[in-house]
């Protein structure tokens, strides 16, 4: 028993409770280190100690984010820690989002040093990198042996009050925030230095990496709406009751397609929302609010457009990695073209 008191947050799997079938468990705490916490304990030996572990199911967290964060924070607080570790989550999307969310709250509300670890492409990174120190890890749990020393190293620096240097030297993911600094030389001198190197074909480093804009040219507007076939899509997570295709509440790995045939309105007996990123009350009361089938049927009757495409597509746009978004979009778009659809209404939240 020595040094700093650390609490470790993890999910149901690493907590040894179970796999996906246990993803719905509510936050609970354990004394001391659990699972991967043991490796951290060893690395922290002499300087810090894992006094407690807080575990929460990834599914529960994704579907009840506000309550989950509040409860997790409360449980963490009970241990009176000096710092917190969350994850590492590797490439597990819901886990990464939960780790980022907990770390963000710990930093802002408990005002404690906190580190997290996850794979570069984990959706939790883009969501929380600005406010959380995230150490990059491999994409699977075998990377634990490198993740632990890397995370421990930074955690100890934060605890000692040492200012963290820049991300590349220190080994954490770039947070994407611009911070002012004084250079030894004036901007003009730095510019001429840079130009000389650039003209020689030598290596130089820009002080401001240009953002890359992935621009998609919009399609031409419809000239003849009355003759058009319109399709309805949503990433607001509306699904048939029971979510038969099990679209995840966050970090969705899939989209699904269903038929509108014979349906005039997205009523609550037929549909529900699976989206974990907003209060589901109003969407569940009347799913037309997110998937406006009723209005479109009326417009179809009135002849505003020719036909509502019978097939509709849905996914949950909550922490979806950009790569998945692109993939879904291209596949759905190709199919819609084949089906002779002229235009799409895509609802979101």
């Amino acid at each position: 028993m020595s040094g700093y008191r650390i609490v470790h947050y993890m999910n149901q799997f690493f907590g040894g409770i179970g796999g996906e079938e246990s993803a719905g468990i509510k936050p609970e705490s354990r004394s001391g280190a659990v699972g991967p916490g043991m490796a951290f304990s060893k690395a922290l030996q002499g300087k810090a100690e894992i006094v407690g572990t807080v575990i929460c199911g990834d599914g529960y967290f994704a579907e009840n984010m506000d309550e989950a964060v509040e409860e997790v924070l409360r449980l963490i607080g009970e241990f009176k820690p000096d710092a917190v570790i969350t994850g590492p989550a590797f490439n597990a999307g819901r886990y990464g989002t939960a780790c980022g969310s907990v770390a963000d709250a710990v930093g802002k509300k408990l005002k404690l040093p906190v580190v997290s670890g996850m794979y570069q492409e984990n959706p939790g990174v883009d969501l929380y990198r600005k406010s959380v120190i995230i150490i990059p890890t491999s994409d699977n749990a075998r990377g634990i042996k490198d993740a632990v020393p890397a995370m421990t190293n930074i955690l100890l620096k934060l605890l000692s009050g040492e200012a963290l240097g820049d991300p590349r030297t220190e080994g954490y993911l770039e947070r994407g925030i611009r911070v002012n600094t004084f250079h030894p030389r004036s901007g003009a001198e730095r510019a001429v230095d840079m130009l000389v190197l650039k003209m020689r074909g030598e290596k130089f480093e820009t002080e401001y990496p240009m953002p890359v804009f992935d621009r998609v040219a919009p399609a031409d507007p419809i000239k003849d709406l009355k003759g058009a076939k319109i399709a309805l899509l949503t990433d607001g997570g509306i699904v048939p009751t029971g979510n038969p295709d099990r679209i995840e509440a966050s970090s969705a790995t899939k989209y699904a397609t269903y038929s509108f045939e014979g349906v005039r309105s997205a009523t609550s007996d037929l549909y529900q929302t699976a989206h974990g990123g907003y209060d589901p009350t109003y969407a569940n009361q009347n799913p037309n609010r997110v998937l406006p089938l009723d209005v479109l049927r009326d417009m179809e009757d009135e002849g505003v457009f020719a036909k509502l495409h019978e097939t509709w597509y849905t996914t949950v746009g909550n922490g979806t990695p950009v790569a998945n978004g692109k993939k879904f979009g291209s596949e759905i778009g190709a199919q819609l073209k084949k089906d002779g659809v002229d235009a799409v209404i895509l609802t979101s939240t």
Binding site: R178, V179, T181, H183, S186, G187, A188, E207
Partner: peptide, 22 residues
Amino acid sequence: ELQAITGATCELGFTRMGAKTL
């Protein structure tokens, strides 16, 4: 904001001020 301070970020590169990404 720094914006209000005369010459603080003069784009002739007059000062040693710069920025980096953390």
